[in-house]
Design a protein around this nucleic acid. Structure first.
Lengths: 284, 284
DNA sequence: TTAGGGTGTTTGTTATTACCGAACATGGTA
DNA sequence: TACCATGTTCGGTAATAACAAACACCCTAA
């Protein structure tokens, strides 16, 4: 549903006009950077023009939106830049990620990202774009599908089975591509493979032609803090190369763990190569 | 007043509950990263506990705030990170600033920032922290005082006198430190010196012990797009060193202008050194 | 030029709904 | 245990958010 996946704070205690105002901001965010006019907003939110107008004016006067002339189009305002920067700065040890991602991108030539775990869901908090011409539309603060992203699978691979099943039930396992895993039993098998090899693979499971490889990092008690991942287009890395990339990613994740004075749980990295060779890559 | 400096879109057309919700976000931003409780929020906004509760719940359910236990404290939410990142990405030619700021910081050892001009006011859109242990609390999206910041003075130095006086009248020239320029005539003199030497100096005018040096950059028509500046603590750069720093900053600003295929207006940099030597630095 | 359809803005009016105060639940402390 | 501080829930009431309709202002086409 609309915004339902978070903890469902009772709907009775929500303020309609505020809810509408926030949806208005989101609507503009989706149409960025072009922005929307009052009429478009009113249609989008299914409210009267005058209501949309009043909401937009309120947001503008507080810097959450800005009016672009002519024909006033509303764009995201600079308060959001300031508040977003503030959030970025208060991410625990936020400065730590960038240097390691830079190294990872330099080594692999791929876009790399760091996500922290929010109740098992990956939230991306840092990004280093690769040198290639391909740019991925990845936003900080974005929450990816836990079952169809490398970061999500890396994080889930560290959690007990019951928690994984709970998250999958809450979130559902919607199909994103032909390769998306939508069966819980298949997914649990995949997490088991992830644990054994020490890194996760999203092989065109979230978007066609795009792969990701991720690995988790840990705090001092061995709890998973989040995951890092690299993203590329499939032609850049055929399946036989993923094994190699996986070890590089896992190695950098281990460096992050070390920076946090963390400890790898005993079962990770214990068998970087499976008994039966590299079949786990090809069988997906 | 509260948020008065922006264009005063008629107060009749604002919705109260949304206004309160946004102020609530700002209140939390000011107390970040600790966050605030419902009771603190209600006191801060001068509304009843139940109202603050409803507003906060609405913001939480949309990801603008997050609830931290115990004793639910409300913090800024990850939607703000995502929206802020989106704004950052749609800044015109946003990728251009960082490499030049990196060079500037490497060369000077100081924190450097880029601001774009929003109707003559400087809005910071990029930042590269210096290697020192001193960190300045500078936020992207923040609007600094035009009359008491190096970036502001650099931008204003490119505008006609009437516009400068209008902005000073709108904004006022509040005193921030002992050194703040609060007299319009003195300020206009300072802008004239800035034009002649090609860079602006904020010598403890915004914060005690902190100096900034800025220089404007231009588009193809010679209009000022914004300014870059470096920031440091006074002990790192006594007055005699500012002249030298100024030329480095101005040089990097010129590189930015070149990147934008811009043109320096004829009167800039025409006399990088004043007739009477370096006295302008000491007389402040 | 004029008519038309599209804006954004302004205006009352109505009933929705946001707000408050008070009651309830909870947790820590003396 | 009683107390005082929270956070949460409830119902009544009046403020106010939302709407429709009118207005002003472009454009474009006839």
């Amino acid at each position: 549903m609309a915004s339902g996946t978070q903890k469902e704070s009772d709907e009775r205690y929500r303020v309609q006009s505020v809810e509408r105002a926030l949806h208005l901001v989101e609507a503009i965010a989706e149409c960025s950077p072009d922005g929307l006019t009052v009429t478009e907003l009113s249609r989008n939110l299914k409210v009267s023009k005058s209501t949309a107008y009043a909401l937009a004016q309120t947001l503008v006067s507080n810097g959450f939106l800005r009016e672009l002339y002519p024909g006033p189009r509303y764009q995201l305002g600079l308060s959001l830049l300031r508040l977003g920067d503030l959030v970025a700065r208060q991410i625990p040890l936020g400065d730590t990620y960038r240097p390691i991602l830079l190294k990872l991108t330099e080594r692999t030539g791929l876009t790399s990202r760091a996500a922290i775990s929010e109740g098992g869901y990956p939230i991306f908090v840092e990004r280093v774009d690769g040198p290639g011409t391909v740019r991925f539309h990845t936003l900080l603060g974005h929450r990816e599908e836990p079952h169809a992203s490398a970061a999500g699978k890396a994080i889930l691979s560290t959690l007990p089975t019951e928690e994984v099943m709970q998250i999958c039930k809450d979130q559902g396992m919607p199909r994103r591509t032909r390769n998306t895993i939508t069966e819980i039993s298949v997914f649990l098998d995949d997490l088991e493979r992830t644990r054994r090899r020490g890194f996760s693979i999203d092989d065109e499971e979230d978007a066609d032609g795009v792969f990701c490889i991720g690995a988790p990092f840990f705090d001092h008690s061995g709890r998973c803090l989040g995951a890092i991942s690299v993203t590329g287009i499939k032609v850049d890395a055929p399946s036989w190369k993923m094994q190699e990339l996986g070890h590089v990613v896992a190695e950098h994740a281990a460096q992050l763990t070390a920076r946090f004075n963390g400890t790898q749980p005993p079962w990770t990295g214990s068998s970087p190569l499976r008994e039966d060779g590299h079949s786990e890559v090809e069988e997906m």
